[in-house]
């Protein structure tokens, strides 16, 4: 079973939920927040790099090139500029679609590859896979895509999604059996939750909501969920103890035993 833990707003507790749920159920974690992966800060597994992530990039053979501009005209990302006797290539704009090589009539384009990220794996009591986007690279989705190839559907797979409602979050939840949307009971939390709900509904993925830091803010998130018929799976109260454990990188199910049971019950309810 694949469970994605997502949220519209950042910093509302996705990783907290993902890590605690994994520890309580023995699930494997896939940290799909490849821009800022945090799950292993709490798990402290010794990670090993298992793969590099490459994007295909054109390599131009200037001896064969006639500077006809067909490749530049085809490229919708404006990654190629053709000068009278040279080619300028902007790798950060290239999507790696391979179209330039197809349109080139002079066989002047080869495919090279450019490293944009890495995949890590490790295991102690919990198994974790993590993607990491290189600094300065814009495209997170190819890293997430490659990371997700390791997902084992037979066990319990928990995907820790990046924040926001953009392509990286959508790439993560694609193909999941269930999405947990984490939020906080504030106007910002509610606003971004509504966008996230629109998306999971559009993709027809069953979902429920967890309200973290319950007690701060107002009751508008609860009212919204009740009005929309959205199940509130769990409320995690705001507590100084939980916040301090978080700041030190300690999953709170390890210190506050009754929460382990609650996360097991959460999984039973989702299943």
């Amino acid at each position: 079973m694949i469970i994605t833990v997502a949220s519209g707003k950042g910093g509302v507790g996705k990783t907290t939920v993902a890590v605690n749920l994994a520890i309580a159920t023995g699930a494997t974690i896939y940290d799909c927040d490849v821009e800022e992966p945090n799950a292993n800060i709490f798990l402290k597994v010794n990670l090993q790099k298992i793969e590099d992530v490459f994007l295909m990039n054109p390599v131009f053979d200037l001896n064969k090139c006639t500077f006809c501009r067909e490749c530049a005209e085809f490229c919708r990302y404006h990654a190629i500029a053709v000068l009278p006797s040279d080619i300028l290539f902007f790798p950060e704009l290239c999507s790696g679609c391979g179209g330039c090589k197809i349109v080139c009539k002079h066989d002047a384009i080869e495919e090279g590859k450019r490293k944009i990220g890495e995949i890590y794996h490790g295991k102690n009591e919990i198994e974790i896979y993590q993607g990491l986007l290189n600094i300065g690279e814009a495209r997170a989705t190819p890293v997430i895509n490659q990371l997700k190839k390791h997902v084992d559907k037979k066990g319990i797979a928990i995907l820790d999604a990046p924040p926001g409602n953009g392509c990286p979050a959508i790439e993560t939840m694609h193909g999941s059996d269930f999405v947990i949307l984490v939020t906080e009971p504030t106007p910002f939390g509610l606003h971004d939750l509504k966008i996230a709900v629109d998306i999971v509904r559009k993709f027809n993925i069953p979902f429920g909501v967890i309200i973290n830091r319950y007690g701060i803010g107002d009751d508008s998130v609860e009212k919204y969920c009740n009005g929309e018929g959205i199940e509130i799976l769990m409320k995690i109260p705001y507590s100084r103890e939980i916040a301090e454990l978080y700041s030190k990188g300690i999953p709170f199910v390890k210190e506050i035993k009754e929460w382990r049971k609650k996360f097991v019950e959460l999984y039973e309810a989702i299943k």
């Binding site: 950042g10 910093g11 927040d33 821009e35 800022e36 986007l133 600094i135 300065g136 690279e137 814009a138 495209r139 997170a140 990046p162 924040p163 926001g164 953009g166 392509c167 990286p168 700041s247």
Partner: peptide
């Protein structure tokens, strides 16, 4: 936005100062 990818790079490139909000 949060993160370090495409929309963050688009927000940050060419600015004069980045104020980074950290948390302990």
């Amino acid at each position: 936005p949060a993160g370090i990818g495409c929309p963050v790079i688009a927000s940050l490139s060419g600015t004069d100062l980045a104020v980074i909000i950290a948390e302990p």
